[in-house]
Amino acid sequence: MKDYLVLRVVSKLLISLMILFGLYVQFHGDFGPGGGFQAGVIIAAAIIFYGIIYGLPAARAVVPSGLVEIMIASGVLIYAGVGVAGLLLGGNYLDYFVLDRDPVAGQHRGIFWVEIGVLITVAGVMLKIFYMFAGRGGDNRDDA
């Protein structure tokens, strides 16, 4: 699909907006609908869109496969790490009240990092599955 001028131009416009919307969903999840899962999927969809238009190698150049694998694991580690941080600061596992002097601010901080962890893992897994499926088609995948 690299040869379609309209798709190329429109996708360049849309992908930046998609990533921006993903970040909005992520960080505004406390106040409106959304959160880590949705934002992760939206950001992964933006990169998958890029991969469909420009071909898998281009997408792999933007987000390398190794980085995606690191993302898959590090998201879970961040989530679990928030729990461990709560333990070290004298609370129970996944207790956010101890993360800050003010319990409500601590809750905010805990939810923020937990959602970041969810975002990273979900985006990583979605991208990895797409890479794996698309990569199996071989070289003719670019025109699909």
């Binding site: 999840g29 106040f31 996944l94 905010h108 969810v118």
Partner: peptide, 20 residues
């Protein structure tokens, strides 16, 4: 929790273990 969205509050805080 100081979070107006109840879904997020339940998901990430009260039910943190489930989400993990």
């Amino acid at each position: 929790t100081g979070v107006p969205n109840v879904v997020t509050a339940v998901l990430a805080s009260y039910r943190g273990f489930d989400t993990l």
